[in-house]
Simulated assay, not measured.
Amino acid sequence: MVAYRYLGNSGLKISEITYGNWITHGSQVENETAIKTVHRALDLGITTFDTADTYANTGAEKVLGKALKDQRRESLEIFTKVYFPTGPMGPNDCGLSRKHIMESLHASLKRLGTDYVDLYQAHRFDYETPLEETFQAFADLVHQGKVLYIGVSEWTAEQLREGHALAKDLGIQLISNQPQYSMLHRVIEGKVIPASQELGIGQIVWSPMAQGVLSGKYLPGKPIPKGSRATDTKGGATFIKHFLDDATLTAVQELRPIAGDLGLSMPQLAIAWVLQNPGVSAAIAGASRPKQLDETVKASGVVIPDDVMWKIGEILADVSHTDPEDTYNVSPKSRP
């Protein structure tokens, strides 16, 4: 069963392995299989579910809402996000303006079949909207009871500081950031993690397995496995390609005996690694079928010895992305 942690410096407990439906629901996986996978997650103790209105252009929220329809709402933590375009992509169909936030949240609630979301996240930073406007809209939704907590995704250390101060002034809580983080992508460690720990903001990390590369199934000098994420033309291939060089794949294979010595699979090692790092509240894991989750949850509660953590860092030192300046290149400088 999955263990639980507090999300940042809040009283909200979440499952440290959080179920995410970014690429799978409404896209790669048939709805019936997706619903069965959500139900298996619940059986395994996963109570936290992360989605976004933009995933499958609202399709992922619809599938998740259907899957959770008959569950006790108070026993769940449902997270969604706002920023990226949905619908016909009109001039106000994206960003963090008051108009888009209000309209998007109400649409998300309908799709999810709930009166409120536990965490509403700014999916990126919006350089074209005053931050005061964004946080006033968030505050109004919190005070209306439609949102319980506020989070963000892929914000820089400075943006987190400014947002946290505004949230505090408005009487609401900014408790989380959702960045990419894995053994191979460690750019948040330099600035984002220290600022977040100072502010009481927890990290809900996505891609803890580096889009599947840390599973070890991609081999140096070998063809890409058929049906893998690297062959997904709907988006998966774009995100994984910068991890597929031979140097990276060769280094990843050196982790196999380490995982074996710990009695873990390669995916379990990758998830346990992120969960052991400071400031991480949860690791987001997706699944295309129920059985995958049976293995994933075995990473919960694992303690990797300090010397092994050091050894992993040494093996991957030359192939890990660590430059904190990369955190400034994630949010678009203008709306999509």
Rank of each mutant, 00 (worst) to 15 (best):
P332Q: 07
V252F: 01
G145F: 06
I304Q: 12
Q292E: 15
E132I: 02
E128V: 01
I304W: 10
K191A: 12
K81N: 09
F135Y: 13
G113F: 06
T47R: 15
L44K: 10
H123E: 05
S176E: 04
W206T: 04
I201L: 02
P85V: 00
I312G: 14
T156E: 03
N21G: 11
M209V: 04
T80F: 07
D43N: 12
N9P: 04
L68K: 13
K69N: 03
M266L: 14
G95D: 01
L64I: 04
M102W: 04
L316V: 00
S75F: 02
L68S: 13
L244I: 00
D323K: 09
R98L: 03
N57C: 08
E30S: 13
Q211G: 01
L184N: 10
A122F: 11
D318Q: 12
I271R: 08
S207C: 01
A41M: 01
P179I: 00
D245A: 10
V319R: 11
Y116F: 13
G301S: 12
T80M: 06
Q173T: 04
A60L: 02
A34G: 08
Q268S: 06
G202R: 07
R256F: 06
F243L: 07
Q136R: 14
K333Y: 05
G301D: 05
F138G: 09
R335W: 02
G235A: 10
I101C: 06
A165L: 13
G235P: 12
H164E: 03
H106V: 04
G95P: 08
A210M: 00
A317I: 01
R256C: 05
I284S: 05
D306H: 14
V330A: 06
R73C: 10
L7K: 13
S281P: 12
A56E: 07
E325N: 11
